[in-house]
Nucleic acid binder design. Structure first.
Lengths: 206, 206
DNA sequence: CCATTAATAGAGTGCGTGCTCTACTATTGG
DNA sequence: CCAATAGTAGAGCACGCACTCTATTAATGG
């Protein structure tokens, strides 16, 4: 017999995923050939298909790994003593990948993939809905506490999520500064949830 | 001899573009086959390539037609007597396509295409830059008039553009209402440019 | 130290692709 | 009514694709 070494397997798999992410982000799912992924990962096609059954599966894996992380962040946000803290924590989490230059491209690829791949769409929609629901709950708690929201809770939640998306869209532009972007977004959120801007919040969360 | 009938030609061309837009929006550039465009447009491949040299050209045409429209809107905004009016007009123009369900998909496709198609990237970047510059100028005029902007003019312009993008991203979601979305965005812009109708909250930003 | 199986490479394959080519029809000017 | 040419269709082609198959090497347990 011979058992598989999970650490070794995971390491190689992660390497392939990293290479695939770069290709997918630059060229989209259909624009990326498995040969390009192999080239970048420095492997043969036999090895690629030993780790993943199809190209689609590689793309799925890229996002599936994030789902539990997001779920945990939502749980943490809802468990926070004060809804303000929960909101801040969740927003921090959502912005965590802002310095990663691959994210905008991957987001665009995901958006298109959702139109043609029902399984993928289900995964993404569920993830999105969970975050949305969490934001709505937090906004409702703030409203219940008498906070004057700019819009109804569901709309405030929608705008926060949209502006996070928008931030990712602009990442990679000339002169983009993730920290500045995040600080400004927090200030807009402050306004949305009727909070007077906390002066100079700690922004060292690298 | 026989001369071409420009109206007839333009009509057919527009029909092909409409079919192509639907396909590109749903499946991206690489995910769309020329055969699919032909099928949707009800034409043969010979006809398709009689009107457009390559698939890429079809995609380019989809966006090239908008460039002069945007430029005109920018000129109008800059020519406005009061910068507030110019800003409102430009924002209205940018949001005009919000009810069109194809736009989000086309935007995602365009985003990916810009990575692989230098000519296309140049076109889009130039268009974007023009709108950005117009917004910056308008914001500067407001600032010069003593209006307390939430951020420096360039950043305010960036956020407006980003939030317009974000609005398009969310178009097509369940229960999306273009009018409501536009109204809320205008209210956020009001806040960004320090315009009065703030919600019931203490108004002092330093 | 061998049996067993994971890991890997890369040639091969069938299919779908963007686009061309040829043939035919519709529409115009003189 | 007759060139002349725009418009149209669709078969065909060369190519790149995702994926398979075969063969070989590396790593583990007993």
């Amino acid at each position: 017999m011979r058992t598989v070494d999970p650490a070794r397997h995971a390491r190689k798999r992660a390497g392939i995923l990293q290479a695939a992410a770069a290709e997918f982000a630059a060229h989209g799912v259909d624009g990326t050939s498995t040969a390009a992924i192999c080239r970048r990962a420095g492997i043969g096609s036999g090895t690629l298909f030993h780790y993943f059954a199809t190209k689609r599966d590689i793309f799925h894996a890229l996002f599936a790994d994030d789902v539990p992380r997001h779920a945990a962040a939502c749980d943490r946000a809802l468990a926070a003593e004060r809804p303000d803290d929960g909101l801040d924590g969740l927003v921090d989490h959502l912005l965590a990948d802002l310095p990663d230059p691959l994210v905008p491209g991957l987001a665009a690829a995901a958006f298109l993939q959702a139109n043609r791949d029902e399984e993928f769409a289900g995964m993404i929609v569920a993830d999105d809905a969970r975050i949305r629901a969490t934001l709505v709950t937090l906004a409702e708690r703030l409203a219940d506490a008498g906070r004057p929201l700019a819009f109804p809770p569901a709309r405030v939640a929608g705008w926060i999520q949209r502006m996070v998306d928008a931030s990712y869209l602009s990442a990679g532009e000339d002169g983009f500064d993730a920290a500045e972007q995040a600080a400004e977004l927090r200030r807009i959120i402050d306004w949305l949830v009727g909070r007077s801007p906390a002066p100079a919040r700690a922004e060292g969360h690298t």
